[in-house]
Simulated assay, not measured.
Amino acid sequence: MTEVTAYLYNKCGTCRKAKKWMDENGITYREIPIVDEPPTKEQLRTYWQQSGLDLRKFFNTSGQSYRERGLKDRLKDMSEEEMLDLLASDGKLIKRPLIIGNGKVTVGFKEDEMEQAWK
Rank of each mutant, 00 (worst) to 15 (best):
R96Y: 03
C15R: 01
C15K: 01
R69Y: 05
N25H: 15
D73H: 10
G70D: 01
K11L: 09
L87W: 07
G103T: 12
M114T: 03
L53P: 03
M114V: 07
S65Y: 02
T2C: 04
G63F: 06
W21M: 05
N60R: 08
G63A: 04
T14D: 12
K57R: 15
K19G: 00
N60E: 03
T106M: 12
D54T: 13
Y47P: 04
M83T: 00
A18N: 02
K76D: 15
G13T: 13
L87T: 06
S89C: 01
W118Y: 11
Q49A: 14
R56D: 11
D36K: 12
W21Y: 09
T61F: 02
C15S: 15
G101K: 10
N25G: 08
T61G: 12
R56W: 13
K119R: 15
I34Q: 01
T14N: 01
E113S: 08
K57Q: 14
E81F: 04
G26P: 00
F109N: 08
P97D: 00
L71N: 04
V35T: 10
E113T: 02
K95P: 06
A117V: 01
G13S: 15
G101S: 13
T46D: 12
L75S: 01
E111R: 04
V35W: 02
K110V: 04
W21Q: 04
E42L: 10
L84Q: 04
N102W: 05
K95I: 06
L93A: 09
E81D: 15
L71K: 06
K11I: 02
L75Y: 03
K95V: 06
A88G: 04
E68P: 01
K17L: 07
W118M: 09
L86I: 02
G91Y: 09
S51Q: 02
M22F: 14
I27K: 08
E3R: 12
R30A: 05
D90Y: 00
E37C: 02
D85P: 08
M1H: 13
E37N: 11
Q49M: 14
R56N: 14
A117R: 08
D77H: 10
Q64F: 00
K20Q: 08
R16F: 00
I99Y: 11
M78Y: 02
L8D: 06
K41N: 06
E115H: 14
K76T: 12
E42F: 09
K110N: 14
S79Q: 02
D36L: 12
M78S: 07
L87Q: 06
P39S: 03
D90E: 13
